[in-house]
Lab assay of single mutants.
Amino acid sequence: DVEPGKFYKGVVTRIEKYGAFINLNEQVRGLLRPRDMISLRLENLNVGDEIIVQAIDVRPEKREIDFKYIP
């Protein structure tokens, strides 16, 4: 289970104008929005990159997770 405030290693699987989709595993995916990136820009991410993200909002009923990147 993903818990708000905890850090997780994930893989960038898709990049859109509104953010990057990060997979923690095959069943768990969330969104990293540009506003939640500190010292990292969306255009510097590539599909396949491994990054450490912090879960900031977890909505299991909608199967949605918002992430934050903190270097």
Rank of each mutant, 00 (worst) to 15 (best):
G5K: 06
N25I: 04
P34N: 08
V28W: 15
I51L: 13
V53F: 02
P4T: 14
K17R: 14
G19M: 04
D49N: 05
I15Y: 01
E64V: 10
G19F: 06
F7H: 06
Y69V: 04
P60I: 11
P4D: 06
L40P: 02
D66H: 09
F21S: 03
I70V: 14
G10P: 00
Q54A: 07
N23Q: 13
G5M: 09
R63Q: 13
E16F: 12
N44T: 11
N23P: 00
V12N: 00
P4W: 08
P4L: 15
G30D: 01
E61Q: 12
K6E: 09
Y18M: 06
K62T: 12
V2M: 06
L31C: 04
Q27C: 11
S39R: 11
P4A: 14
R14N: 06
Y69I: 04
D36T: 03
E26K: 15
N25Y: 07
P34H: 08
K68P: 01
F7N: 07
E3W: 11
P34K: 14
V12E: 00
T13R: 06
F21D: 02
G30A: 03
I56K: 12
F67V: 04
N46A: 15
K6D: 04
N44S: 13
V47Y: 06
S39Y: 13
D1P: 14
L32H: 01
L24I: 13
Q27T: 14
G19E: 01
G19T: 02
P4K: 15
S39K: 13
I38N: 12
Y8H: 02
E26L: 12
K6M: 11
I65T: 03
K6P: 03
A55N: 01
G5C: 09
S39D: 15
V58G: 04
K17D: 11
F21Q: 04
D49A: 07
G19P: 00
D36Q: 07
D49Y: 07
K9W: 14
I15T: 03
V28P: 02
L40C: 08
D66N: 09
I22R: 00
E3C: 10
I70E: 11
A20V: 10
I56S: 08
E3T: 14
K68R: 15
R35A: 11
M37I: 06
G10E: 00
V2Q: 03
V47I: 14
R41Q: 13
D1I: 15
E64L: 14
L40W: 04
T13A: 10
E61R: 08
I15N: 00
A55R: 04
I65N: 02
V2T: 04
I56L: 14
E61C: 07
K6S: 09
F67M: 04
L45C: 02
I56A: 09
P71D: 09
G5T: 05
I22F: 03
K17F: 13
M37Y: 02
N46C: 12
Q27L: 14
V58P: 05
R33G: 02
P34G: 10
G5L: 09
R59S: 06
S39I: 10
Y69W: 09
V12Q: 00
D1Q: 14
E50W: 15
E64Q: 14
G30W: 03
G48R: 04
F7M: 09
E3D: 08
I70K: 08
A55G: 02
N44Q: 15
E3K: 15
G30Q: 01
G10F: 04
R41C: 09
I65E: 01
E3Y: 13
V28H: 09
L31D: 01
D57Q: 15
P60M: 10
A20Q: 00
P71L: 06
R41T: 15
K17L: 12
R35W: 09
M37K: 02
L40I: 12
V47T: 06
V12K: 00
A55E: 02
V47D: 03
D66V: 09
V12W: 02
N46R: 15
D57W: 09
V47G: 02
P34D: 07
R35F: 07
G30F: 04
G10L: 04
L24P: 00
N23M: 12
M37V: 04
V2Y: 09
E61K: 11
E43F: 09
V12I: 13
A55T: 08
G48P: 01
P4N: 10
L31T: 04
P60S: 11
V11Q: 09
K17V: 14
R33D: 03
L45P: 01
D49H: 05
I15D: 00
D57I: 11
Y18I: 09
V12L: 03
E64A: 07
G30T: 02
L42W: 05
S39N: 15
L24D: 00
K17M: 11
I65C: 04
I56P: 01
Y69M: 05
V28M: 10
L42S: 03
L31M: 08
E16D: 08
V47H: 04
K68V: 08
G10I: 03
V47A: 05
L32D: 01
P4G: 07
E26G: 13
N25C: 09
R29Y: 13
R33K: 08
G19H: 03
N46D: 10
E3L: 14
I38W: 09
L42R: 03
R41S: 14
